[in-house]
Design a binder for these strands. Sequence first.
DNA 1: ATTTTTTTAGACAGGTCGGTACATATGTGA
DNA 2: TCACATATGTACCGACCTGTCTAAAAAAAT
Lengths: 192, 192
Amino acid sequence: MTIDKREQLIEAGLALFYRNGFTATGIDRVLAEAGVAKMTLYKHFGSKEALIREVLRRRGESFRAWLMAEVERRSTDPRGRLLALFEAYGAWFREPGFRGCIFLNATAEFCGIAEAIAEQSVEHARLTQAYIRGLVAAANVEDPDALTAWLVLLLNGAVASAQVSGEAAWAEKARAAAALVIDGAPPGQQIP
Amino acid sequence: MTIDKREQLIEAGLALFYRNGFTATGIDRVLAEAGVAKMTLYKHFGSKEALIREVLRRRGESFRAWLMAEVERRSTDPRGRLLALFEAYGAWFREPGFRGCIFLNATAEFCGIAEAIAEQSVEHARLTQAYIRGLVAAANVEDPDALTAWLVLLLNGAVASAQVSGEAAWAEKARAAAALVIDGAPPGQQIP
DNA sequence: ATTTTTTTAGACAGGTCGGTACATATGTGA
DNA sequence: TCACATATGTACCGACCTGTCTAAAAAAAT
């Protein structure tokens, strides 16, 4: 095969699930978009749920890679990188077709219903927070775990608020709040 | 009729839509739960979408009323009431069957798809923010709009994080961050 | 007691859902 | 050239979807 059918299914699934929701998107629409036969989907994934899981796993990988690259590109200063998180989110909110975070959306649809899918969101949150925790560690503050939690709260809040209101400016408001909690967090012991 | 059928439909719809999602919940399940005939639903609401809209409208009213009562009950001090928002949210997160905010869930399913439904979430956010704005106004800070936005971000972030992780403790983390931004916000001009 | 409104059960329509079966075709490597 | 894996189209399954219809029953109002 010149083109990997499996890949096309994941890409089509990502686009359609994100745009129209998971439950509302039928298998047939994914097949039509991917240009693939139904049996091929079930050979590769076995079920719609498994396809969704794989779509989320892949989206998590690429989103975190994108976020890290954006943060590193925007600043080299440890504190600047924390603020760069919010700038990257602002750019994300302004992408055409932005419809919130697919993991928060998946949680809204599947938490308490399809745990194997919801687990992907937990995992993405865990990995994203671990990355932010690393950025915070470089910023030398007294309580890095607390600051990490505050930044995560502001980031998630910005996503939710931006999705509901359609206003990407929530990213800048969150950035301002982040600047305040970063400065408000007492610095750790100075290295002499 | 001894019992109002319309009311039963709204209550059954709220419970089922919240627990299992909007798209995933069929009309028939709502009818069975409400103990009502199908025609009665369509006489009262005309469509599933209209029922969802009414469910959200009613849920918004009762949630905001509950939140206001909780905040007033927990503190009389202006700053204490801002923190009481987060304490009320913590109690909410710990309610059995908590599955996030039904408005954020509705936005995840319907934003960009069924605007008449998504609009209910926008309206709820608007009214909730107006209430918080009033609380902030009483706290006498220099930039009440900014503080309102920061509190909203932390509240929404707490809901999203608590839903994904299942950990209600995010409410206390958000409360700590709120205390920081409240204290970090310079006080407004003192009345002599 | 009679009229009027509301609610009922159940069948029905026209689709879509996720998933399976099967026989054919297409491409690949030995 | 032959064998093998992969992908194809299409039909099909039973279940479920929202919404409509009808004719009878229950309830409310007069």
